[in-house]
Computed example of a mutant assay.
Amino acid sequence: MADVIQAERMPATVRVARFVLTLKVAFGIVGLALFGAIIFASAGVAAILPLLPQVAVTALEGWLLSRWMSRRKPVRWGVVAIEVASVGAHLTLVAIDSDFGWTSLLSLSVLFPLAVVIPLLMPSAGRWFDR
């Protein structure tokens, strides 16, 4: 008879990060679909080109999310890198385009990535992503 091997439970911090990342990918797909359809209907194919960076980020986040259960260290650090770059890009655009202040730090474009990065930097997440 085959022996049953108990899998290690995912820590709560990793579950929270995975849930928030899932929300980000889902909102990204829906937002890109709606925004892309509106732009395509009004301006044509060439106007969709500015959406390509967001398409790339959403696709990369989705791919990393699909690799989550592999528990490999590059998945953890890849998610952290993408989220930090996402916050940096948002804050750079806000600083260039408008007034940079506390309200720009409290936007969902900053809070969602922080809700992913902070749990992934906890020691329990480091132990779970040990491969």
Rank of each mutant, 00 (worst) to 15 (best):
D3N: 13
V4W: 11
P11H: 10
P11N: 11
A12R: 13
A12W: 12
V20G: 02
L21E: 10
L21S: 10
T22V: 07
L23H: 02
A26R: 00
F27N: 03
G28M: 02
V30D: 02
G31Q: 03
G31L: 01
L32M: 04
A33C: 03
L34Y: 07
L34K: 00
F35E: 10
F35V: 12
F35M: 11
G36T: 09
G36K: 01
A37W: 06
A37M: 07
I38V: 14
I39E: 09
I39F: 03
F40D: 07
F40C: 00
F40A: 11
A41L: 11
A41Q: 08
A41C: 00
G44E: 06
A47R: 09
A47N: 09
I48H: 01
L52I: 15
L52Q: 05
A59P: 06
L60H: 05
W63A: 14
L65G: 11
S66H: 14
W68P: 03
M69G: 09
M69W: 11
R72F: 00
R72D: 08
P74G: 04
P74C: 03
V75W: 04
V75G: 03
V79M: 09
V79S: 01
V80I: 14
A81H: 06
I82S: 05
I82V: 15
I82L: 14
V84F: 07
A85C: 10
S86A: 13
S86C: 08
S86F: 08
V87W: 02
G88S: 14
G88K: 01
H90W: 13
L91V: 04
T92Q: 07
L93G: 12
L93E: 14
V94I: 11
I96F: 10
D97S: 13
D97V: 08
F100W: 10
F100G: 03
F100N: 04
F100I: 12
T103P: 00
T103L: 13
S104C: 04
L105S: 10
S107K: 13
L108H: 06
S109P: 01
V110E: 07
L114Y: 05
A115F: 07
A115K: 01
L121C: 12
P123S: 05
P123R: 05
P123Y: 06
P123V: 08
S124G: 01
G126S: 11
R127T: 12
W128Q: 04
W128P: 02
F129H: 03
